[in-house]
Design a protein around this nucleic acid. Sequence first.
DNA 1: CGTCGGACGCAACTTCTTCGCGTTAAGCTG
DNA 2: CAGCTTAACGCGAAGAAGTTGCGTCCGACG
Lengths: 174, 174
Amino acid sequence: MGRDALTVPLIAARAGVTPSTVYRRWGDLRELLSDVAVERLRPEAPPADHGSLRADLEAWAVQFAEEMSSTAGAAYIRDALLGDPEQGNAARCSDYAAEQLKAIGVRAAGRGEAVPGVETLLDVVVAPLMYRILFRPGDLSEDYTGHLVAAALGRLAPPPAPPAASPPAEAHKS
Amino acid sequence: MGRDALTVPLIAARAGVTPSTVYRRWGDLRELLSDVAVERLRPEAPPADHGSLRADLEAWAVQFAEEMSSTAGAAYIRDALLGDPEQGNAARCSDYAAEQLKAIGVRAAGRGEAVPGVETLLDVVVAPLMYRILFRPGDLSEDYTGHLVAAALGRLAPPPAPPAASPPAEAHKS
DNA sequence: CGTCGGACGCAACTTCTTCGCGTTAAGCTG
DNA sequence: CAGCTTAACGCGAAGAAGTTGCGTCCGACG
């Protein structure tokens, strides 16, 4: 069935209820789609353990980029952003990513690795990916994702030791 | 008039045409609003010259953040993203920012300053701002914007000399 | 057992959306 | 300049979607 041919009466018929029931519960097709999108964007499993912070982050970021840049993923993001007056659903999406990154972080900290803060990871890895997905379609590559992770690891926390590798200066070019 | 009470027949009446004319030209209310939003988001003037790359970037980023995080600005961004099947309008928004940053960059290069690439600036400054505006409303401060600019300047280009200051390690915390 | 509240179906009503037809105006050709 | 072509618009009807009030059913509570 067509993506934007979806209407409340169709959904109601599929659900075996009358359209008025759907309108009363959600009030709007966009709000319903927004709730559905958030549900679909919820991660199903904790991030996989690949033995190191870098490997975990790269694997997670690549999977994240693939999911979100797919046709379906991008549609979900847009739906989640749209029918959402108080931005509650959008914040939930960000929280999902933050939870996953947090899990990766505590696991790495348990190994004794230096770990960037969740805020830093959101800024350096998630935000650029999302920005490209939303505003610059077709501009994503696995190399780029790896570059973002490297940039995040270039901003490590002061506690344990000085950062081993120097930050990649001006890596990525248009 | 109410924001989402806007309908095609209302716009047509205001424009002095029949609704069918509007439907034929745009096909959809969302596409019309998307075009309007892009027009409103177009920068009116080149970025102001404050004498240094850092000052120019900070001023531009602060103004950008203010505009985009305002109620009207956020609504425009959402409209631009929404009614836009081929993502042409979203790409245009990104191009606007890229043009402004490019102008700041060439001006700084004319002064002999080391300049981060436009891609880097989009990743490090624009993307985090947009991500917060879209996914984490109410999470923007001027300090944060300055922090982003500082992070961008921490990633300078290799040509002139090795980066003077070390990158700010793990500055910003939730 | 009686009452209350919430949720739903039903149906009428309003508004939006689509589509075909006739008209008008601009541009081009002979 | 006359005639033709094309694109855009107005008009009106038909179809679909969105909105609302009323009656009914079912579970909860006293």
